[in-house]
Design a binder for these strands. Structure first.
Length: 271
DNA sequence: AAACCTCCCTGGGGGC
DNA sequence: TGCCCCCAGGGAGGTT
């Protein structure tokens, strides 16, 4: 499942193949994604791609004829392959380039989206306008998070996963970061001290950065049909380990549901 | 307004 | 072996 690190790895993988290239044809095989793929994407035929940007878990292709917004949802994957390479099940969308390559989106669960924006969507588009800061920038600090949390009774895990607070912290990283920071996932966000946010924020940054760095090792063969590598799985302390012993104190890990999401923690280590 | 809940979708896994 | 049911997840949008 693409979390922020995987989207960033996707961006790094596809950008060198796309930037400076021209779009020859836009192919929509299955328009029924999260939202129907709009007709306007056809306007990108003939466009020159300037840049591939990531904002939260969205990828934004800058072209001289507008902006393409991509979201991978739960199960989406992007590959750069030869335009005549075999189309497989769930290959819903592609941009064919004049150099014979194409950017192909495969998404079995269709939670992803492909959208068009005439202006840069970061400030203008309703989906991106209200997003919180990027976790790997200087804007994301302990004092910012502490201030956002003031008066909130919401569980800190739900708070961290709210895109208005900070983007890109999905269920896996919220679980892992709270474990490493020793904070109970159900603790009210507004009752977590500044000192504990000062511990948590660097942990979130380090966890995301480490995952990106490891995804980087798969960049070489990114254009091959390998699928998701699962490179981060061996580093997980709590996610998917409910009922098994805590790696620190051996206490049986507790699994609960919080905001419809599976939540695993150590009742000994996390308070 | 804040804090919940629901829904979209398919593949995979467990139970029988 | 095969079938059914449930679950996973991001995040918009609805409800309380």
């Amino acid at each position: 499942m693409p979390e922020l690190p995987e989207v960033e790895v996707s961006r790094m993988g596809i950008a060198p193949h796309l930037e400076g290239q021209q779009i020859k044809a836009v192919v929509v095989r299955e328009p029924r994604l999260r939202w129907p793929i709009p007709e306007q994407v056809m306007q990108l035929e003939g466009a020159l791609i300037h840049q591939v940007e990531r904002r939260a878990k969205y990828l934004i292709l800058h072209t001289d004829k507008g902006f393409l917004i991509l979201h991978l949802g739960m199960s989406g994957a992007l590959r750069v392959v030869a335009s005549d390479s075999l189309v497989v099940k769930h290959d819903h969308f592609e941009l064919q380039l004049t150099n014979g390559q194409c950017l192909r989106l495969n998404d079995p669960r269709r939670f992803g989206c492909v959208l068009f924006s005439a202006q840069h969507p970061g400030v203008e588009h309703p989906l991106l306008r209200a997003l919180g800061p990027e976790p790997l920038t200087e804007a994301f600090t302990a004092s910012y998070l502490h201030q956002q949390a003031q008066g909130k009774t919401q569980a800190i895990k739900t708070f961290l996963m709210d895109n208005h607070v900070v983007v890109g912290v999905g269920n896996i990283y919220a679980n892992e970061a709270l474990f490493k920071a020793g904070i109970h996932p159900k603790r009210a966000a507004g009752k977590v001290s500044l000192a504990r946010y000062q511990r948590l924020v660097p942990i979130i940054k380090e966890t995301l950065s480490a995952a990106i760095a490891q995804g980087g090792t798969t960049l070489q063969d990114f254009t091959q049909a390998d699928g998701q590598p699962g490179y981060f799985k061996q580093h997980l302390n709590v996610y998917g380990r409910g009922g098994r012993p805590c790696m620190v104190c051996k206490t049986e890990l507790t699994e609960i549901r919080l905001g419809q999401r599976s939540t695993v923690y150590c009742k000994q280590c996390q308070r």
